[in-house]
Structure formats: structure tokens, C-alpha cells
Design a protein around this nucleic acid. Structure first.
Lengths: 188, 188
DNA sequence: CTCTTACTAGACCGGTCTGTATAATAACCG
DNA sequence: CGGTTATTATACAGACCGGTCTAGTAAGAG
């Protein structure tokens, strides 16, 4: 039986947008419905698991998009330093454009939806996939200990987003891009 | 007029503990009162600014403690590499001991209390102070570009806490300690 | 003892939260 | 046409939210 409306998808995207801005507990389902002009009656039809399922699926969606986008950043630049610069640069632009309101769709939920196990698991899975992509590219460039390096890459980018958003200043993202560069050169 | 009870201080500590565990919106004031065995009637006597003031002051308190502790880590170790290892090691132990429940008292609130301006400002101030301490020590060790390096230090530690907590594994904190070390040696 | 001030008890407000009813509508299938 | 399934409308339950209010207790000052 094929789906006949796009309500489910629109719900997911509206929710993802609100979650990354206001966090898990800071976002109400009524808010999601209102913001997206969505039919309230169908919320628990499409997501019988309630808010937790909604958030978990939103994280899954965002995670896949981030992975694809990071992968593209690495393939479209000659080396890892360029990829890092592209990634932090894009994040900085996006952050500033939103008035420093929208955070990372995964990191934000990872912080305050830790008690909702399905959401936590979805975030962990997204981070794992993201880490795998970065590690693969670092290894391809012949960098030493790509596993720990990829983890540090992720942590620094995630932390820099946090700092930049909180301080309403893209400086942390830019600082990470420059300070981390030496680790991403072959001769380090 | 001197204070006659320690209620205010106990409220602050209970709130800080709950906030770093469940986040800003995930923590209710009734919960704070119940958890700490605190007099509900006096909540708005001590904190007329309500939840926002409570959270902002809790962040201030935690921020000062973190600063002092980081400063000690740097003075008690011969070089920056040792300090980073001590810091991440302690954080990993503390995190694991709490069953991966308690996050950074500043970072957690910075994520999901961004709309509560006083709380956001308190977090920004705490990060600023923390950054100042680290930058000072890195400069003292003669490291180049201590400002950006300190920012990266902070971002990586904060991000690693996020990852470790979410994945219920101290590996990210340990990975950051090893991968970031080359940047903290004089001959880098 | 009296008075002032610091503090607490605990009920209560309107509002919002997630989640659940029941029933209506709308499309496809035979 | 009838029947099945997909989807939505709407009202509401029950709990909890942050915050306010009034009344009162108790400790120090004079």
C-alpha cells in the first residue's frame, strides 16, 4: 500500500528543524504541528512511538544527510585540511545565517535527550557513521592513527559548534580549522 | 544582615547537579525541590528571577570550579600534554562513575538553554574564563598561537565529553588526549 | 519583651505537556 | 456500487510546568 500524502515526511522535517533549535525537551509536539501546519490527528498515526520515535527518526534523517555531505566535502577537496576548512566554513556560515540559533541536529539532541533511549541510540548511530566516513578518508590520505584522529576531528567540530553558537561568534569554528590543520598534513 | 540558613546554597548545588544531568528544559523546579529536600516556599525568595536565575547562578558556580580545577591541572603537571591527559582522564572517570549520565555543567546548559538569555550569557562567560586560563598556560609553555589553540583545546574536550556520554564509552575522551598531544609539544 | 527581618509552608493559578479517545473523510479496489 | 484501508479532525484526559500568593515561623536586634 503506497503512501498517499507527504505528511509524515513534512512532520519529520519540521521536527528536525525545531529540535536542532530548541532541543528535545524544549520542543513541544503542539509546536511542531503548529509550525509545520500539520494535521495533529495524524501525529500518532505516523509515529505511534510518540515524541521519542519522532526525534529518533529525525536524527536518523539528519545523520544520513550529514554523512553524505561530509563525504562530499572530502572527495571534492584535495586533502584533509581543505575538507576541514570547507566543513567548518559551511557550518559557520549556516550558523551565522540562522542568527546563531540552529545547532547541530545530532549534537543538540545527544545532549538533552540522553534519557530517551531511542533518541540516544539514534544519535550514537549517527555519530558512529559520521566517524566512519571521516576515518576512511583520513586513512585514504595516509594519516597515522586515523581512528583517534577522526574522533578528535568530530569532537572538535562538535565542540566548536557548541562554542560558536553559545558565544554568537564564528571564531571558535575558524580557530579549530586553523589549529587542527597540522594534524591533518601527511608530514605531521 | 547575614544569611541564617544554607538553603540557597543547597538549592544551587542540587539544581546544578540536575541541570548537568537532564538539561535545562529537562529539569523541573519541583524536581529540584524534591531531590534536595528543599523548601519550595523559599525558591522564589532566594531566586526571584526564577528558573533562569537559578540556572545562570548554577553555571557561574560550576564555571568557577572548573576554572580553578583546570588551572590546578596545568600547574601540577610539567607540560601541556600532561595537563590535557589529566583533564580528560578525570572527566572520563567521573563520567563513567555516574553511569554516563552527568555531562559538563556548562556545555549541557549551553546547548539547550540558548533561548534563556541570562543562562546563555552565564555559559558564555564561563567558557570565556575557562579559555583564558588555558590560553595563559599554553602561552607560558611557549606554544604558538595560544588563543586558537586554547579554543581548540576547549572545543575538543567539550565535544569529547558529548561523544563519550552519548556513546557510553570513554574512548572519545582518551582519543582526544592522544591525538591532540602533538599540538601541545613545543617542537610542533 | 518587642519588633524587624530572614525565611518557610503549602495551596493554588493558568497554561502546556504528551498521549488517547472516537469518528469522520478520502482514496483506491473489486 | 460496496468495502477496505489510509488519513485526518477534534475533543479531551491526566499530569506537570513555572510562578504567585498569603500566612506564618523563628532568629537576631534593641
Amino acid at each position: 500500500m503506497p503512501r498517499r500524502t507527504d505528511t509524515r515526511d513534512r512532520t519529520l522535517r519540521t521536527a528536525a528543524e525545531l529540535f536542532r533549535t530548541h532541543g528535545y525537551h524544549g520542543t513541544g509536539l503542539n509546536q511542531v504541528v503548529a509550525e509545520g501546519g500539520l494535521p495533529k490527528g495524524s501525529l500518532y498515526f505516523h509515529f505511534p512511538g510518540g515524541k521519542e520515535q519522532l526525534a529518533a527518526e529525525a536524527v536518523g534523517l539528519a545523520g544520513a544527510e550529514v554523512c553524505a555531505w561530509v563525504d562530499r566535502a572530502f572527495t571534492e577537496t584535495p586533502d584533509a585540511v581543505g575538507a576541514l576548512a570547507a566543513i567548518t566554513g559551511f557550518l559557520a556560515d549556516e550558523l551565522a545565517a540562522s542568527g546563531f540559533r540552529r545547532g547541530c541536529p545530532i549534537g543538540t539532541l545527544a545532549q538533552d535527550a540522553g534519557d530517551a533511549e531511542p533518541v540516544r541510540a539514534a544519535c550514537a548511530e549517527a555519530f558512529r557513521a559520521w566517524h566512519g566516513v571521516v576515518r576512511g578518508h583520513l586513512a585514504r590520505h595516509g594519516l597515522p592513527d586515523p581512528d583517534a584522529l577522526a574522533t578528535t576531528f568530530l569532537a572538535a567540530v562538535e565542540g566548536a559548534q557548541l562554542l560558536s553558537r553559545n558565544q554568537r561568534d564564528t571564531a571558535p569554528l575558524r580557530a579549530v580549522a586553523t589549529a587542527l590543520a597540522p594534524l591533518l598534513r601527511k608530514d605531521s
